[in-house]
Design a protein around this nucleic acid. Structure first.
Length: 270
DNA sequence: CCGCCGCCCTGCTTGC
DNA sequence: TGCAAGCAGGGCGGCG
């Protein structure tokens, strides 16, 4: 499932391929995927627009258009954004195709149809509820302490809450907590000061390393070229039920926390 | 404000 | 072997 490192990798690839191109037309094959304001036709509205930028915010890929509008794309679990030439084979479940100048096509596919491409106006604050970018200078120790302090919520649930930190999903929450040697169920407000610092650094470190490895491909994720990442080979605990902890050798367990599968080491995560 | 729950959806895994 | 139930999960709306 695409989290921050996967979306970052996709966006960097897309930026290289489609910035400066004009949208000559748009095919919306499944209407509920392409969302616009009630009176606005998504395809008609973006036709003729030039793509002036592609960026990431949290787990969203944002296409910035010359008019000031943006297409905010959420991939959820199985969404994919791939650029291909017209005529090249499509991925299954291709619901939206943007025709760019020349033969380039930007395809959005999603077998589970949870993902969305949403057209937002230039002054629409679509990300008002989204939290801090963990790889930005705003993710300071003080900011992180402010999020944790006084809360009883399990720290893993807090890491998954996009209103606090934007971009962490289940894989990197599990990996960062393992890295910081913190039990996922620990009440957020009960972390010691050193544990808080370890966790903040672990988040930054794990996300950065995953970007270097071009993301984690377990089931569906591919980049803008349709290629897999390689961070799945560097996972310590995610999906590793019964395998030895890379740090202490104890068996990795799977529990359920905040309705999510949670992998961790009972011996060295406290 | 906060936290919890159900829903959306389909492919894969599990169990009989 | 075949089939159906169960499971997976990010974001969102509803509820207490």
């Amino acid at each position: 499932m695409p989290e921050l490192p996967e979306v970052e990798t996709i966006v960097r690839g897309l930026a290289r391929k489609i910035v400066g191109k004009t949208i000559a037309g748009a095919e919306v094959r499944l209407a509920r995927i392409a969302v616009a304001a009630p009176t606005v036709d998504f395809a008609a509205e973006i036709t003729g627009e030039r793509i002036v930028g592609v960026r990431r915010r949290g787990k969203y890929a944002v296409f910035e258009l010359a008019s000031g509008s943006s297409i905010v794309t959420s991939l959820r679990m199985t969404g994919r954004l791939v650029v291909a030439r017209n005529g090249q084979p499509e991925l299954p479940g291709t619901h939206v195709v943007l025709h760019l100048n020349g033969r380039a096509r930007l395809r959005f596919s999603d077998v589970r149809t949870f993902g969305r491409m949403r057209l937002v106006g230039s002054h629409e604050e679509w990300d008002r509820e989204l939290g801090v970018e963990p790889l930005s200078s705003s993710f300071t120790p003080e900011a992180f302490i402010g999020m944790l302090s006084g809360r009883t919520t399990p720290v893993k649930a807090l890491l998954l809450d996009q209103r606090r930190i934007a971009g962490i999903g289940n894989i990197y929450a599990c990996e960062a907590l393992w890295e910081a040697r913190i039990r996922p169920s620990r009440p957020s407000g009960r972390l010691t000061k050193p544990a808080t610092h370890r966790l903040r650094r672990a988040i930054v470190e794990v996300l950065g390393r995953a970007i270097e490895m071009r993301g984690t491909s377990i089931d569906d994720y591919v980049d803008a070229d349709g290629l897999q990442g390689s961070f799945q080979n560097n996972l310590s605990v995610y999906g590793k039920t019964g395998r030895p902890c890379p740090r202490c050798g104890a068996s990795i367990v799977r529990t359920v926390l905040a309705q999510r599968g949670t992998w961790w080491c009972r011996r060295c995560q406290k």
